[in-house]
Structures are given as structure tokens and as C-alpha cells.
Amino acid sequence: MPEPINVTVTTMDPKTTGKQLFDHVVNIVGLREVWFFGLQYVDSRGYSTWLQLNKKVTQQDVKKEKDPLQFKFRAKFFPEDVSEELIQEITQRLFFLQVKEAILKDEIYCPTETAVLLASYAVQAKYGDYNKEIRNPGYLANDRLLPQQQWEERIQNWHEEHRGIQREGSMMDYLKIAQDLEMYGVNYFEETELCLGVDALGLNIYEHDDKLTPKIGFPWSEIRNVSFNDKKFVLKPINKKAPDFGFYAPHLRVNKQILALCMGNHELYMRRRKPDTIEARE
């Protein structure tokens, strides 16, 4: 399993748009399921945000102290079901690496037992079948698998169970379990007065101390319109009797980001529900 690598892309052309840069990157990677991905950067105020494809790169607020400009190529949108939607092996691997990293950094909460099982699939993806002839105790000591390293024996027990599963299969098995974690695939906005989560299925509102269980959920099918006016963000339900749901973001640009993520996620949501799927059209 190759480790993730940092790539720096430089351009001479100040007119280059976000889309030209993005297309260049996906061509190099050989990726076709491009609709899940984006280029992430840190803006001049230190906030992580996504490169807009329809604007020039130089018009966007990329931190200028870094030369060359730095971007992370990452999944921006998540499928509703990995086994239905992630077809290309490169797409599967990029999701696997990104989700694994988020779990190891505790950005996605994962109960210990699940973490052990996931780690065993990561090990199967990396080493193949468990073989006690060549795998001496300590064989996982140098791998980042769990927040703490003392779980080798338990991971090994699961690892032995995965005999015969190929690397790609192991990564997909990993993702099939990870996608059921509450925080998987949710874009959280915590600077808002209530914590907001945007994901493939809609908008959720959380209390700041519990990002696992939404206080209220608004699936796309129940939302008529989302909009903002300066720092105020308003969600109008389909049901006209239900009250509008509004909140204030600390900055206008947070509202712009929330709206862009709503549009992108809902676009994919609609396409999935058309008989002619994205994959079929491609």
C-alpha cells in the first residue's frame, strides 16, 4: 500500500481557473469519478476551504505566504453507499486513505471494537493474508492503526479471518463498515451558534457537545430552499406549516461554503435518483 504523498502543482498562468487546475490533477491521478473530489486550501485567515472551479485560482483567497500555493486533493462529497458508487480502484483507494486518516485522527469517532476490526482490514489491505510463519509478534508495531498500539493481538485475530480477501476488497470492506459511523461523510460547521452538519442526505443540527446524534435532521426531500443574506442562513421546509429554520454564522464566507456544499451534495443526491446514473452516463 503506497503511503499518501504530497504533490505540489505550480502554474505559470495567472488566468488558470480552478477547473483547469482540478482537471490537470485528476488527469495525472487517472481519476474518472471526479464528482466526489475537490482541491482544499487554507485561506489567508487560516480557515480550510475548497477551491471554486469556476473562478481563477489567483482570485481566490489562497494563503499567499506559501509559495508555491498549496492544495490538498481530497474527497469533498461522499457517496450514500460506497459499494454502489465507488467503481474505480483509484477512487476506492483515495476514499480508504482519507477515511482511515480521519478515523486515526479522531475526526470520525469510532468505537474501539469497530476500530480493531477496521484496523484488521487495513492490515489485510497492506500485507495480504495472515501468515504466522512470517508474521512475528510485533509485526504491526510500526503501523499507525489505532490511537494506541497495544491492540496487535486483537487485530491479528481478525486479520487471520480475512484470508483470501484481495487488497481492493479489504479497502472496500473497510469503507463499508466506516460509512456507518455517525460522523462519516459529514461536513461540520462548528463556528455557527448551533453545530451544523451537511452530508449526502441532507442537513443536520447538532448540539456542540454531541456531534453523533443530530437534534434535528432535514433530509433533502423535506427542504424547499436554502439561502443566506450576509451572516444569516435560512432553511425553508417543503411543509409550509413548518417554521423556517434560521441561524447566524460568524462570517459571510462560512455561509457561502455551507450553500456550496448543500448544492454539491444535493446535485449528487438528485443524480443518484435518476434512472440514468452518473456511472452509466460516464
Binding site: 433533502w220 427542504i223 424547499r224 430552499n225 436554502v226 439561502s227 443566506f228 443574506n229 450576509d230 417543503i238 459571510l252 455561509n255 457561502k256 450553500l259 448543500c262 448544492m263 444535493h266 446535485e267 438528485m270 443524480r271 435518476k274
Partner: peptide, 20 residues
């Protein structure tokens, strides 16, 4: 400037704009 400070997305209306 005013336009940049506002944004809207019709979730339900978006279905009608989908290419058939």
C-alpha cells in the same frame, strides 16, 4: 456587492433543471 452577500439554492426547484 449586494449580490455577493446573498445566495440562494432552490432544493426542490433543482429537480426541474436536471437534464432529462
Amino acid at each position: 456587492l449586494r449580490q455577493q452577500r446573498m445566495g440562494t439554492y432552490g432544493v426542490r426547484a433543482a429537480w426541474r433543471r436536471l437534464p432529462q
